[in-house]
């Protein structure tokens, strides 16, 4: 019968209309600014720099300014200047650090390649997305102070991944320590006071506190 297809279609729309009042399968929208969808754990937006300690973010950055991410970044949005001197990182090891670390988020495409290539687990993907501004240049250019976020924040947004990363870092640190110990034992005469570079003072809880390098 002519028109039966039309009537059948109207039946479907009626079903959806009625269903939208009681069936969550048929009402899938949210009133955005008031209601927010839960972000999946893997969700990624612009990168941030992981620091070990929230109170001293600049002193405990994991980044050593190796510039691998700067080279690998496809749209070239990262800009790094590394330091000429060294200072102790969170574990007390003397390290080069980034004097300047900028990410131009107007260029960044959130592809995560910087995270993948970083050998130091120093750069991770953030989850903030409400970052619209009126200024095209300055506000979208994030410097290292804006980029640094503590490890606790990383645990908050990517719990599974962060736990894996922490376990891996701990294992690496232990292995390095044992290696250093093994290297140190055959010649006990050398260095009664451990030099800050070779056998690093262990306690990671007391990171850069008092760790100012000798000038």
């Amino acid at each position: 019968m002519l028109g039966s297809g039309l009537l059948q279609g109207l039946k479907v729309t009626a079903k959806n209309l009625v269903g939208s009042f009681h069936d969550p399968e048929r009402l899938t929208t949210l009133e955005y600014p008031e209601q927010k969808a839960k972000l999946p754990e893997n969700y990624r937006n612009f990168p941030f720099l992981v620091s070990e300690n929230a109170t001293d973010p600049m002193g405990t950055l994991r980044c050593v300014g190796c510039q691998i991410c700067e080279k690998e970044c496809p749209p070239q949005c990262i800009y790094i200047e590394k330091s000429k001197d060294k200072k102790p990182d969170a574990t007390g090891k003397m390290q080069v650090y980034p004097v300047v670390f900028d990410i131009d988020t107007s260029v960044c495409m959130s592809c995560q390649i910087c995270v993948e290539v970083c050998p130091f687990e120093a750069i991770k993907m953030d989850q903030v997305f409400e970052i619209a501004t009126k200024d095209r240049f300055t506000a979208l250019l994030l410097d290292r102070n804006q980029l640094a976020k503590p490890n606790s924040y990383y645990h908050e947004i990517h719990p599974t991944e962060a736990a894996e990363v922490d376990a891996r870092l701990l294992a690496e640190r232990k292995a390095a320590e044992e290696k250093a110990k093994a290297a140190a034992t055959p010649k006990p005469a050398v260095a009664p006071t451990p030099s800050p570079t070779a056998t690093a003072p262990k306690p990671p809880e007391a990171p850069a506190a008092g760790g100012t390098p000798a000038p």
């Binding site: 899938t28 999946p40 754990e41 893997n42 969700y43 495409m109 959130s110 592809c111 993907m125």
Partner: peptide
């Protein structure tokens, strides 16, 4: 489509630019 995009987002981190 949005349901499938949610799947992609929870796997790869992005709805459309999966990489």
């Amino acid at each position: 489509r949005e349901k499938i995009l949610d799947l992609f987002e929870s796997l790869s981190g992005s709805r459309m630019m999966c990489n």
